[in-house]
Write a protein that binds this DNA or RNA. Structure first.
Lengths: 137, 137
DNA sequence: ATAAACCTTGGAGTTAACTCCAAGGTCAAT
DNA sequence: ATTGACCTTGGAGTTAACTCCAAGGTTTAT
Protein backbone atom coordinates (compact mmCIF):
# COMPACT_ATOMS: atom_id res chain seq x y z
CA UNK A 1 0.00 0.00 0.00
CA UNK A 2 1.33 3.42 -0.90
CA UNK A 3 0.16 6.99 -0.88
CA UNK A 4 -0.87 9.31 -3.67
CA UNK A 5 2.55 10.95 -4.07
CA UNK A 6 4.27 7.62 -4.52
CA UNK A 7 1.81 6.46 -7.15
CA UNK A 8 2.10 9.79 -8.92
CA UNK A 9 5.87 9.65 -8.97
CA UNK A 10 5.92 6.06 -10.21
CA UNK A 11 3.97 6.87 -13.36
CA UNK A 12 5.04 10.46 -13.69
CA UNK A 13 1.72 12.23 -13.23
CA UNK A 14 0.77 14.88 -10.68
CA UNK A 15 -1.16 14.19 -7.48
CA UNK A 16 -3.72 16.72 -8.71
CA UNK A 17 -4.25 14.61 -11.79
CA UNK A 18 -4.84 11.51 -9.64
CA UNK A 19 -7.42 13.34 -7.52
CA UNK A 20 -9.03 14.55 -10.72
CA UNK A 21 -9.21 10.99 -12.07
CA UNK A 22 -10.82 9.88 -8.83
CA UNK A 23 -13.36 12.66 -9.11
CA UNK A 24 -14.11 11.51 -12.66
CA UNK A 25 -14.54 7.94 -11.50
CA UNK A 26 -11.53 6.52 -13.30
CA UNK A 27 -9.27 5.54 -10.45
CA UNK A 28 -10.38 5.36 -6.82
CA UNK A 29 -8.03 4.68 -3.93
CA UNK A 30 -8.94 1.25 -2.66
CA UNK A 31 -8.60 2.41 0.94
CA UNK A 32 -8.04 5.42 3.19
CA UNK A 33 -5.67 5.58 6.14
CA UNK A 34 -7.06 6.56 9.56
CA UNK A 35 -5.96 10.11 8.87
CA UNK A 36 -7.78 10.16 5.54
CA UNK A 37 -4.82 9.64 3.20
CA UNK A 38 -5.57 7.80 -0.03
CA UNK A 39 -3.95 4.36 -0.16
CA UNK A 40 -3.29 2.46 -3.38
CA UNK A 41 -2.14 -1.08 -4.19
CA UNK A 42 -0.34 -2.44 -7.28
CA UNK A 43 -3.69 -2.99 -8.99
CA UNK A 44 -3.97 0.78 -9.14
CA UNK A 45 -0.63 1.00 -10.96
CA UNK A 46 -1.93 -1.25 -13.76
CA UNK A 47 -5.12 0.73 -14.00
CA UNK A 48 -3.31 4.06 -14.13
CA UNK A 49 -0.87 2.69 -16.69
CA UNK A 50 -3.85 1.74 -18.82
CA UNK A 51 -5.40 5.19 -18.47
CA UNK A 52 -2.15 6.86 -19.50
CA UNK A 53 -1.68 4.63 -22.54
CA UNK A 54 -5.27 4.99 -23.63
CA UNK A 55 -4.93 8.76 -23.40
CA UNK A 56 -1.78 8.63 -25.51
CA UNK A 57 -3.57 6.89 -28.36
CA UNK A 58 -6.31 9.49 -28.34
CA UNK A 59 -9.09 8.24 -26.10
CA UNK A 60 -10.69 10.87 -23.91
CA UNK A 61 -11.46 10.21 -20.25
CA UNK A 62 -15.09 9.33 -20.93
CA UNK A 63 -14.03 6.73 -23.50
CA UNK A 64 -11.49 5.34 -21.07
CA UNK A 65 -14.10 5.03 -18.36
CA UNK A 66 -16.21 3.10 -20.83
CA UNK A 67 -13.29 0.84 -21.77
CA UNK A 68 -12.58 0.13 -18.12
CA UNK A 69 -16.24 -0.63 -17.47
CA UNK A 70 -16.22 -3.34 -20.13
CA UNK A 71 -16.07 -6.41 -17.99
CA UNK A 72 -17.19 -9.94 -18.53
CA UNK A 73 -19.16 -9.88 -15.33
CA UNK A 74 -22.02 -12.28 -15.81
CA UNK A 75 -23.88 -10.82 -12.86
CA UNK A 76 -24.27 -7.39 -14.40
CA UNK A 77 -23.83 -7.42 -18.14
CA UNK A 78 -25.05 -9.64 -20.92
CA UNK A 79 -22.54 -11.07 -23.30
CA UNK A 80 -24.16 -9.07 -26.07
CA UNK A 81 -23.63 -5.76 -24.30
CA UNK A 82 -19.98 -6.44 -23.59
CA UNK A 83 -19.31 -7.67 -27.08
CA UNK A 84 -21.04 -4.75 -28.78
CA UNK A 85 -19.12 -2.12 -26.80
CA UNK A 86 -15.84 -3.99 -27.24
CA UNK A 87 -16.21 -4.27 -30.99
CA UNK A 88 -17.31 -0.66 -31.28
CA UNK A 89 -14.12 0.48 -29.57
CA UNK A 90 -12.08 -1.89 -31.70
CA UNK A 91 -13.56 -0.41 -34.86
CA UNK A 92 -12.66 3.07 -33.66
CA UNK A 93 -9.10 1.89 -33.16
CA UNK A 94 -8.95 0.24 -36.57
CA UNK A 95 -10.14 3.40 -38.26
CA UNK A 96 -7.39 5.40 -36.51
CA UNK A 97 -4.75 2.87 -37.51
CA UNK A 98 -5.90 3.03 -41.12
CA UNK A 99 -5.70 6.82 -41.17
CA UNK A 100 -2.36 6.88 -39.44
CA UNK A 101 -0.99 4.43 -41.98
CA UNK A 102 -1.89 6.80 -44.80
CA UNK A 103 -0.08 9.64 -43.05
CA UNK A 104 2.88 7.39 -42.45
CA UNK A 105 3.16 6.48 -46.10
CA UNK A 106 2.86 10.07 -47.23
CA UNK A 107 5.57 11.18 -44.81
CA UNK A 108 7.82 8.39 -46.00
CA UNK A 109 7.20 9.46 -49.58
CA UNK A 110 7.95 13.06 -48.69
CA UNK A 111 11.23 12.09 -47.04
CA UNK A 112 12.24 10.00 -50.04
CA UNK A 113 11.39 12.69 -52.54
CA UNK A 114 13.45 15.08 -50.49
CA UNK A 115 16.74 13.24 -50.63
CA UNK A 116 17.38 11.24 -53.71
CA UNK A 117 14.07 11.74 -55.46
CA UNK A 118 14.42 11.98 -59.19
CA UNK A 119 11.77 14.69 -59.68
CA UNK A 120 12.65 18.36 -59.35
CA UNK A 121 10.26 18.76 -56.38
CA UNK A 122 10.59 22.51 -56.02
CA UNK A 123 7.25 22.71 -54.29
CA UNK A 124 6.65 19.26 -52.89
CA UNK A 125 4.70 19.34 -49.65
CA UNK A 126 2.81 16.85 -47.57
CA UNK A 127 -0.31 17.66 -49.56
CA UNK A 128 1.24 16.65 -52.87
CA UNK A 129 2.79 13.60 -51.20
CA UNK A 130 -0.66 12.62 -49.93
CA UNK A 131 -2.06 12.91 -53.43
CA UNK A 132 0.63 10.51 -54.60
CA UNK A 133 -0.31 8.08 -51.82
CA UNK A 134 -3.99 8.30 -52.74
CA UNK A 135 -3.13 8.06 -56.42
CA UNK A 136 -1.25 4.77 -55.89
CA UNK A 137 -4.46 3.41 -54.34
CA UNK B 1 -13.96 30.62 -55.94
CA UNK B 2 -16.42 30.24 -53.11
CA UNK B 3 -17.20 31.85 -49.81
CA UNK B 4 -16.63 30.70 -46.29
CA UNK B 5 -20.09 29.20 -45.81
CA UNK B 6 -19.74 27.02 -48.86
CA UNK B 7 -16.35 25.71 -47.82
CA UNK B 8 -17.66 25.07 -44.33
CA UNK B 9 -20.67 23.15 -45.61
CA UNK B 10 -18.57 21.09 -47.99
CA UNK B 11 -16.40 19.65 -45.24
CA UNK B 12 -18.91 19.90 -42.44
CA UNK B 13 -17.19 22.39 -40.18
CA UNK B 14 -18.46 25.74 -38.89
CA UNK B 15 -17.56 29.11 -40.37
CA UNK B 16 -16.31 30.06 -36.91
CA UNK B 17 -13.89 27.16 -37.03
CA UNK B 18 -12.58 28.33 -40.41
CA UNK B 19 -12.02 31.86 -39.10
CA UNK B 20 -10.29 30.34 -36.09
CA UNK B 21 -7.99 28.30 -38.34
CA UNK B 22 -7.15 31.43 -40.29
CA UNK B 23 -6.31 33.23 -37.06
CA UNK B 24 -4.07 30.32 -36.11
CA UNK B 25 -2.35 30.46 -39.49
CA UNK B 26 -3.56 27.09 -40.74
CA UNK B 27 -5.82 28.07 -43.61
CA UNK B 28 -5.95 31.55 -45.11
CA UNK B 29 -8.43 32.62 -47.74
CA UNK B 30 -6.42 33.12 -50.89
CA UNK B 31 -8.39 36.25 -51.73
CA UNK B 32 -10.99 38.71 -50.48
CA UNK B 33 -13.93 40.05 -52.47
CA UNK B 34 -14.32 43.83 -52.85
CA UNK B 35 -16.73 43.76 -49.93
CA UNK B 36 -14.25 41.89 -47.75
CA UNK B 37 -15.68 38.38 -48.01
CA UNK B 38 -13.16 35.54 -47.76
CA UNK B 39 -12.77 33.66 -51.05
CA UNK B 40 -11.40 30.13 -51.30
CA UNK B 41 -10.37 27.89 -54.20
CA UNK B 42 -10.23 24.09 -54.44
CA UNK B 43 -6.71 24.12 -53.05
CA UNK B 44 -8.26 25.22 -49.78
CA UNK B 45 -10.54 22.17 -49.77
CA UNK B 46 -7.52 19.85 -49.92
CA UNK B 47 -5.79 21.75 -47.19
CA UNK B 48 -8.85 21.73 -44.94
CA UNK B 49 -9.37 18.04 -45.61
CA UNK B 50 -5.83 17.44 -44.49
CA UNK B 51 -6.32 19.47 -41.32
CA UNK B 52 -9.47 17.54 -40.44
CA UNK B 53 -7.83 14.16 -41.00
CA UNK B 54 -4.72 15.10 -39.08
CA UNK B 55 -6.90 16.22 -36.19
CA UNK B 56 -8.76 12.91 -36.27
CA UNK B 57 -5.57 10.93 -35.81
CA UNK B 58 -4.57 13.02 -32.82
CA UNK B 59 -2.38 15.86 -34.06
CA UNK B 60 -3.02 19.20 -32.42
CA UNK B 61 -3.22 22.40 -34.44
CA UNK B 62 0.38 23.34 -33.74
CA UNK B 63 1.57 19.95 -35.02
CA UNK B 64 -0.60 20.32 -38.09
CA UNK B 65 0.84 23.74 -38.82
CA UNK B 66 4.28 22.15 -38.62
CA UNK B 67 3.27 19.31 -40.92
CA UNK B 68 1.89 21.78 -43.45
CA UNK B 69 5.04 23.83 -43.26
CA UNK B 70 7.17 20.85 -44.29
CA UNK B 71 7.84 21.64 -47.89
CA UNK B 72 10.62 20.72 -50.21
CA UNK B 73 11.22 24.32 -51.05
CA UNK B 74 14.85 24.61 -51.99
CA UNK B 75 14.81 28.37 -51.61
CA UNK B 76 14.00 28.28 -47.90
CA UNK B 77 14.80 24.95 -46.30
CA UNK B 78 17.70 22.59 -46.46
CA UNK B 79 17.05 18.99 -47.29
CA UNK B 80 18.30 18.07 -43.83
CA UNK B 81 15.74 20.25 -42.09
CA UNK B 82 12.84 18.88 -44.08
CA UNK B 83 13.96 15.31 -43.67
CA UNK B 84 14.51 15.60 -39.91
CA UNK B 85 11.07 17.07 -39.26
CA UNK B 86 9.40 14.60 -41.58
CA UNK B 87 11.01 11.59 -39.96
CA UNK B 88 10.27 12.94 -36.49
CA UNK B 89 6.58 13.14 -37.32
CA UNK B 90 6.69 9.71 -38.89
CA UNK B 91 8.18 8.23 -35.75
CA UNK B 92 5.41 9.82 -33.71
CA UNK B 93 2.88 8.16 -36.01
CA UNK B 94 4.61 4.78 -35.83
CA UNK B 95 4.59 4.88 -32.04
CA UNK B 96 0.84 5.60 -32.06
CA UNK B 97 0.19 2.77 -34.49
CA UNK B 98 2.15 0.37 -32.31
CA UNK B 99 0.20 1.36 -29.21
CA UNK B 100 -3.12 1.20 -31.00
CA UNK B 101 -2.29 -2.29 -32.24
CA UNK B 102 -1.83 -3.49 -28.68
CA UNK B 103 -5.20 -2.09 -27.72
CA UNK B 104 -6.74 -3.66 -30.79
CA UNK B 105 -5.42 -7.08 -29.90
CA UNK B 106 -6.57 -6.84 -26.31
CA UNK B 107 -10.07 -5.81 -27.36
CA UNK B 108 -10.21 -8.70 -29.81
CA UNK B 109 -9.13 -11.04 -27.05
CA UNK B 110 -11.76 -9.63 -24.73
CA UNK B 111 -14.48 -10.10 -27.33
CA UNK B 112 -13.39 -13.68 -27.98
CA UNK B 113 -13.25 -14.55 -24.30
CA UNK B 114 -16.70 -13.16 -23.94
CA UNK B 115 -18.52 -15.36 -26.41
CA UNK B 116 -17.16 -18.82 -26.79
CA UNK B 117 -14.16 -18.57 -24.52
CA UNK B 118 -13.51 -21.77 -22.65
CA UNK B 119 -12.47 -20.12 -19.38
CA UNK B 120 -15.04 -19.15 -16.76
CA UNK B 121 -14.16 -15.44 -17.12
CA UNK B 122 -16.30 -14.18 -14.28
CA UNK B 123 -14.15 -11.12 -13.90
CA UNK B 124 -12.40 -10.66 -17.22
CA UNK B 125 -11.82 -7.01 -18.07
CA UNK B 126 -9.69 -5.12 -20.53
CA UNK B 127 -6.91 -5.03 -17.95
CA UNK B 128 -6.69 -8.81 -17.72
CA UNK B 129 -7.00 -9.05 -21.50
CA UNK B 130 -4.10 -6.63 -21.85
CA UNK B 131 -2.01 -8.79 -19.54
CA UNK B 132 -2.71 -11.74 -21.81
CA UNK B 133 -1.61 -9.70 -24.83
CA UNK B 134 1.58 -8.64 -23.08
CA UNK B 135 2.12 -12.16 -21.84
CA UNK B 136 1.98 -13.61 -25.37
CA UNK B 137 4.98 -11.41 -26.21
C1' DA C 1 9.48 19.43 19.62
C1' DT C 2 9.77 21.42 15.58
C1' DA C 3 10.83 21.76 10.73
C1' DA C 4 10.26 19.62 6.30
C1' DA C 5 7.74 16.92 3.55
C1' DC C 6 3.75 14.80 3.17
C1' DC C 7 -1.51 14.73 2.90
C1' DT C 8 -6.72 16.74 2.94
C1' DT C 9 -10.68 19.66 0.73
C1' DG C 10 -12.68 23.31 -1.93
C1' DG C 11 -12.36 26.40 -5.26
C1' DA C 12 -10.17 29.37 -8.69
C1' DG C 13 -7.21 29.71 -12.89
C1' DT C 14 -5.28 27.90 -17.42
C1' DT C 15 -4.95 26.10 -22.20
C1' DA C 16 -6.62 24.41 -26.60
C1' DA C 17 -10.05 24.48 -29.66
C1' DC C 18 -13.73 25.90 -30.51
C1' DT C 19 -18.66 28.27 -30.17
C1' DC C 20 -21.73 32.01 -29.58
C1' DC C 21 -23.14 36.72 -29.79
C1' DA C 22 -23.74 41.66 -31.05
C1' DA C 23 -23.69 45.20 -34.23
C1' DG C 24 -23.42 46.02 -38.59
C1' DG C 25 -22.35 45.58 -43.96
C1' DT C 26 -23.64 42.82 -48.65
C1' DC C 27 -26.31 40.53 -52.08
C1' DA C 28 -30.16 37.99 -54.50
C1' DA C 29 -34.90 37.64 -54.96
C1' DT C 30 -39.59 39.34 -54.65
C1' DA D 1 -36.90 48.79 -51.53
C1' DT D 2 -37.07 45.59 -48.27
C1' DT D 3 -36.69 40.76 -46.58
C1' DG D 4 -33.65 36.97 -45.72
C1' DA D 5 -29.55 34.71 -46.13
C1' DC D 6 -25.16 35.68 -46.34
C1' DC D 7 -20.74 37.99 -44.66
C1' DT D 8 -17.49 41.13 -41.41
C1' DT D 9 -14.96 42.06 -36.73
C1' DG D 10 -14.26 41.87 -31.86
C1' DG D 11 -14.99 39.86 -27.84
C1' DA D 12 -17.16 36.82 -24.47
C1' DG D 13 -18.44 32.01 -23.13
C1' DT D 14 -17.74 26.82 -23.08
C1' DT D 15 -15.65 22.18 -22.41
C1' DA D 16 -12.08 18.90 -21.22
C1' DA D 17 -8.37 18.06 -18.65
C1' DC D 18 -5.79 19.57 -15.94
C1' DT D 19 -3.01 22.92 -12.61
C1' DC D 20 -2.51 25.94 -8.83
C1' DC D 21 -3.56 27.83 -4.39
C1' DA D 22 -5.08 28.47 0.48
C1' DA D 23 -5.82 26.83 4.90
C1' DG D 24 -5.10 23.32 7.55
C1' DG D 25 -4.03 18.30 9.40
C1' DT D 26 -0.19 14.23 9.56
C1' DT D 27 4.39 11.88 9.54
C1' DT D 28 9.20 11.53 9.68
C1' DA D 29 13.77 12.97 10.67
C1' DT D 30 16.81 15.59 13.53
Amino acid sequence: MFRIGQLAKQLNVSTDTLRYYEQQGLLTACERSTSGYRLYDKHAVDRLQFIIRAKEVGFNLKDIQELLSIKIDKQHYSCEEVKALTLQKRDWIRARIAQLSIFERSLTLLANQCCGGSEPADTCSILTALEDVDGAH
